[in-house]
Each structure stands twice: as structure tokens, then as C-alpha cells.
Computed example of a mutant assay.
Amino acid sequence: MAHVVGGYDLWFTGKAYWKAHRSVAGGEADMVPVTWTKGWRRDSNGSNFLEVWFENADEAQARSGEAGPFVVALAEAKDFEVVPRVFKEFRGLFEVEPTGTILSPNSLETRILRRVDANKTAVAAPAPAAAKKAKAKKSKMG
């Protein structure tokens, strides 16, 4: 089942939630890592970071060593206490770059560069809490 996020169609590559296919209007698809809202943090300078988990340590090491940014799909789990995670919804697509910090054998820290949206030019990434408050405010307004 495809989910529409930021003008892109996203669908999982299999039963595990490690990667998703991404396409625009049924065009050619690429594959992006899926990570969880639980990994989002903001530092005291206002920079946003995201822990990106990979299926295994080799994949995390390979991505960590690559130069340049990559896109991840940010997902929310139904319950973060349940492992493996059960997907609830996608929250957005983000362009990130590795900071060089390995957080666990299969995860690394990334700096969020921008939100990716096929419908408009890339915009700065808001924190999930701010996005949730804006959405709630909008729904109250009608």
C-alpha cells in the first residue's frame, strides 16, 4: 500500500520497515532508508539531528563513509516499546548528512538539512513537535 508524503508515493520494500520505495506520480522509484521519530533531537543551537537505523552494521558503516547528503523517510511507530516497531504513519522526507558519529552498531547520527517535498522547493525542516502543534492548530481552525 502506497502512502503519499510530500508529493511522493512511499511503500515499504518488504515486511521489515528498513527501507521504502519513493516515486513521484508513478515515475521511476528509488529506495530510501526509513527511520523513526524517536531518533529526532534538537541541540542548544537549534540544529536538528536524526538517528538513522539500518538493517545491519555493514549498511550503517557504508552509509557513514559516503560523502554527501541522502534522503530518509521519517516514520512514527504505533508503540516505541514494541520491538520490532509497528508502523503508524510517515511524517515526512528529509535530506540528511552523516555527522560522523556512530550511535550504535547499526545506527548513525545525521544532521537534518531540509524537508523534501516534490510539490515545492525544499524548505527548512521543522521539529516534529512544532509540526504537530501547527497541524492541531490548523484542524481547530476548521
Rank of each mutant, 00 (worst) to 15 (best):
G100Q: 09
P33H: 05
K132F: 14
G27N: 06
R115Y: 02
P126E: 13
T99L: 02
R42P: 05
K38D: 15
F54C: 01
A77G: 13
F54W: 09
V96F: 06
A136Y: 04
G68A: 08
F54H: 13
A20L: 06
A129N: 07
L93A: 02
P33E: 01
V72P: 07
F70C: 08
D58H: 13
S23L: 02
T99C: 01
R91G: 00
A130W: 02
A125Q: 02
K78F: 08
R42Y: 08
K88G: 05
N45P: 00
S107L: 05
V52I: 09
T110H: 03
M31E: 15
G46A: 04
E59N: 12
V82S: 08
K78E: 13
G68Q: 03
R114L: 02
T101H: 10
A124Q: 12
A129D: 09
R114S: 11
D58I: 10
A29H: 11
W40I: 10
K133V: 11
R41K: 14
A124N: 09
T110R: 00
A77I: 10
D30I: 11
G68E: 01
A57V: 06
E109I: 01
A124F: 12
R91E: 11
A136V: 11
A127N: 01
D79R: 07
S23M: 06
K132Q: 14
D117G: 10
F87V: 05
L103W: 03
D30N: 13
A130S: 13
K132C: 01
G100P: 05
N106P: 08
D117P: 04
A131P: 03
D43E: 07
E109M: 05
V96K: 02
L50N: 05
Q61V: 07
N45Y: 09
R42G: 08
I112W: 01
A130K: 11
R111C: 06
L50S: 07
S44H: 04
A129Q: 11
V82Y: 07
W36T: 04
D43I: 04
A57Q: 15
A134S: 07
R63H: 11
P126M: 13
G92R: 04
V24L: 05
Q61C: 03
L113Y: 01
A60V: 07
V116E: 06
A131L: 15
L93T: 06
T99R: 03
P84A: 07
F94R: 06
A118K: 00
S23E: 09
E109V: 03
A73L: 14
K137D: 14
G92N: 04
D43T: 05
D43C: 07
F49N: 05
K78L: 12
P105D: 01
R85F: 15
P33L: 10
I102R: 15
K135N: 08
S44A: 12
K120E: 08
W53N: 12
T110V: 03
V32G: 00
T121A: 14
G68V: 10
P128Q: 07
A57I: 01
L113C: 00
V71H: 04
T35S: 12
V72E: 06
K19V: 08
V116K: 02
W40Y: 15
I102K: 15
V96I: 06
